[in-house]
């Protein structure tokens, strides 16, 4: 009896084994990178966080697994076929949603659906270093994939990601144009900030669970610094810090940009406290509620311009 059970199990396992043995062999021969490209003239090698990827021609169907890449593509005039939008199209900020039109959601940024991505048959996938490093192999098997920093990047990192994306798209010239336009725009915005601007700013996500301040190295913080708006937090190991009222008082920002998440937030509670009322920004009426999707989730060229427009609008044109 014992033996029969054991042998039955071995049988099942052998079946399973042979089944997967067969398919994994096919897999290697289907590798798109192995048999593509050598001859075509416009084949280029893109260097990125996980190594080098060969891309041939101009990709038409692109899947973006972070919002900043959606922004990059939209800047180039490309509409991605698939976006990891956390299954909520509202998270794509209005100006970009208008540009890119329809797309297919591939699920959450944390765990995008590989099945949906492959069903879109893309010819380029752009993914984030922190979130998608572990599935790089699977993504590469579906289509040429480049992995760039987004989640952990500051403004400069975002710009260099954009350059890589335009190279990968085979649109380097267009990319340079866009970047030149962007820089001109940024210069124009920068010009609106007076030389002697000394006010400190504090961008933060405010939620019911806490006040998450973005310091000078964060994307939003570094962006604002780039036009001469000094961040109130010039320290800290982490770019995003959960802080309490006491620390806000200590940093005493002159301007606060609140990216509001949820109906109730800690700030509602703080408003009844004199300490909060005495923070420079509150005293001067410089607390501004801004769109969290645009200010913190998007991290791209278009959103950078919009953020600065927002900020300058609030600071100088009221």
């Amino acid at each position: 009896m014992k033996k029969s059970i054991v042998s039955l199990f071995m049988l099942v396992l052998v079946l399973v084994l042979s089944a997967c043995g067969g398919s994994s062999e096919d897999q290697t021969s289907e590798d798109p990178q192995a048999d593509s490209g050598e001859t075509a003239e416009d084949t280029r090698v893109i260097e990125h966080e996980m190594g080098e990827t060969e891309i041939t021609g101009q990709p038409e169907k692109v899947v973006a697994l972070e919002f900043s890449f959606v922004d990059n593509l939209a800047s180039l005039g490309v509409s991605p076929v698939g976006i990891a939008d956390d299954d909520d199209s509202e998270r794509i900020i209005e100006p970009i949603r208008e540009k890119i039109g329809d797309y297919t959601s591939v699920g959450t940024r944390k765990q995008p659906s590989l099945e949906v991505i492959s069903s879109l048959q893309p010819d380029l996938i752009i993914a984030d270093m922190k979130r998608h490093k572990d599935i790089y192999d699977q993504l590469s098997d579906i289509a040429p994939t480049i992995i760039l920093p987004s989640l952990a990047a500051d403004y400069e990192g975002i710009i260099s990601s954009f350059e890589t994306v335009s190279k990968a798209m085979g649109m380097e010239e267009k990319g340079d144009e866009v970047l030149a336009d962007h820089e001109a725009k940024m210069e124009e915005l920068r010009a609106q900030v007076p030389e002697d601007e000394e006010r400190t700013v504090l961008p933060a996500v405010v939620a019911d669970s806490g006040y998450f301040a973005h310091n000078m190295e964060s994307y939003t913080g570094s962006l604002l610094e780039s036009i001469g708006l000094k961040n109130a937090i010039q320290s800290g190991d982490e770019r995003y810090n959960k802080i309490n009222l006491e620390q806000v008082v200590e940093f005493n920002p002159d301007v606060m940009f609140h990216m509001v998440a949820g109906d109730q937030t800690v700030v509602d509670e703080w408003e009844s406290n004199d300490l909060y009322q005495n923070i420079s920004a509150v005293e001067n009426g410089e607390v501004h509620e801004v769109d969290r999707n645009m200010w913190s989730r998007f991290r791209g060229l278009i959103s950078s311009e919009k953020i600065l427009e927002d900020a300058i609008n609030y600071l100088y044109e009221e």
Binding site: D86, T108, K110, A207, S209, G210, F212, K242, N244, L245, A261, G262, V266, E269
Partner: peptide, 19 residues
């Protein structure tokens, strides 16, 4: 809500910001 901080608070517990 996809924030990690929320999960951590409800699994570990904290008293910062109590009034």
């Amino acid at each position: 809500e996809t924030s990690t901080e929320d999960v951590l608070f409800w699994l570990a517990g904290g008293i910062d910001g109590r009034n």
